[in-house]
């Protein structure tokens, strides 16, 4: 059985990706996690300057999902290069570094600083963080997304993945725009805008008031958007949003994902990638599928 998958120039040994923000910057979990069964790890989003993040509390669990408002807390790119990167090459997985910022200039400087680093296998551009207090996310605008990617495309040969927000009227238009601008893949979805109120205190549960919604609650909406995009752009789609077991993962492959990403479930089970991979293999064997293409094409809507 062949589980390898190409995302731009990058080849992953299997299609299970640990999503940004739920797996640290690299090797923090090495005592607990078997990295050899993870296709790739996406780092926490890194910004040019260190960021403290939002006012706590930063996480709240609803009946079937999780709202977070971390606010891109990260040590900044220089500290990442000095303190985190050196350890990464030793792990048996690929490292996709997630980049975030408010302005074109920030993304440009980030790519310039990281392009020469061998241990960075690809870039994921976080165009969709809901926790920055900005009025508009980059991936809510075709023009902003397209201009940014065109710019960055000139600076690097590494694989460029655009991570999109589901919070748009027509996500296919955005996916087409980043595809035309030179992205190698799209990653979707980031979290949905959300709010939860403590009725006793009459206050939001989160220090930042609002946050991004993830986990099982968002799966059907995410799956729908992945299916729409996979059917209308040629780029590989890294699909996810609410996956907690192999059945969820299979649904995302059937909807057209080239690879799948696990977010919230990593917080509960840091080894979920390994468990899900094992079960996906079993499913494929049972269904006599030789590769991921067989799996994807077997959806007869």
């Amino acid at each position: 059985m062949d589980l390898a998958v190409n995302i731009g120039k990058l080849t992953l040994k299997n299609p299970i990706i640990c999503a940004s923000g739920t797996f640290g910057f690299g090797d923090e979990l090495k005592g607990l996690v078997d990295f050899s069964s993870i296709g790739a790890v996406v780092s926490k989003t890194i910004t040019l300057e260190p960021r403290e993040g939002n006012i706590p509390p930063r996480i709240y669990e609803t009946n079937c999902g999780v709202i977070n408002s971390i606010g891109l807390a990260n040590p900044g790119v220089d500290s990442f290069i000095k303190e985190k990167l050196p350890a990464l090459g030793k792990l048996k997985t690929k490292h996709i570094v997630s980049l975030g910022g408010s302005f074109k200039k920030e993304y440009k400087q980030l790519v310039e600083k990281l392009d020469k680093e061998d241990k960075v296998d690809a870039f994921e551009l976080n165009l969709s963080c809901p926790n920055l207090g900005k009025k508009k996310l980059i991936s809510q605008s075709q023009k902003l997304s397209s201009d940014l990617i065109k710019n960055l495309r000139k600076l690097t040969k590494k694989t460029l993945i655009a991570k999109l927000t589901p919070e748009v009227t027509d996500i296919v238009k955005i996916a087409k725009a980043v595809s035309d601008a030179g992205a190698d893949a799209v990653s979707m979805v980031n979290t949905y805008f959300s709010l939860a109120i403590d009725i006793e205190k009459k206050k939001s549960y989160l220090g930042n008031i609002t946050g991004g919604y993830s986990g099982p609650a968002i799966k059907p909406m995410s799956l729908y958007r992945v299916w729409q995009v996979a059917n209308s752009v040629k780029l590989p789609v890294i699909g996810g949003g609410g996956i907690i077991n192999y059945k969820d993962a299979i649904e995302f492959f059937l909807a057209g994902s080239a690879a799948v990403s696990l977010g919230t479930i990593n917080l509960t089970d840091p080894n979920s990638a390994k468990d899900i991979l094992k079960e996906v293999k079993k499913y494929m064997k049972k269904n006599k599928m030789k590769n991921l293409g067989d799996l994807r094409r077997s959806f007869n809507a």
Partner: peptide, 22 residues
């Protein structure tokens, strides 16, 4: 106490303010 995500230091959900930052 603080609301937690991972419990393992990777998600930055569980911070509290201290004199030297979160």
């Amino acid at each position: 106490e603080q609301f937690m995500g991972c419990g393992l230091g990777v998600c930055s959900a569980c911070v509290i303010p201290t004199k030297t930052g979160y």
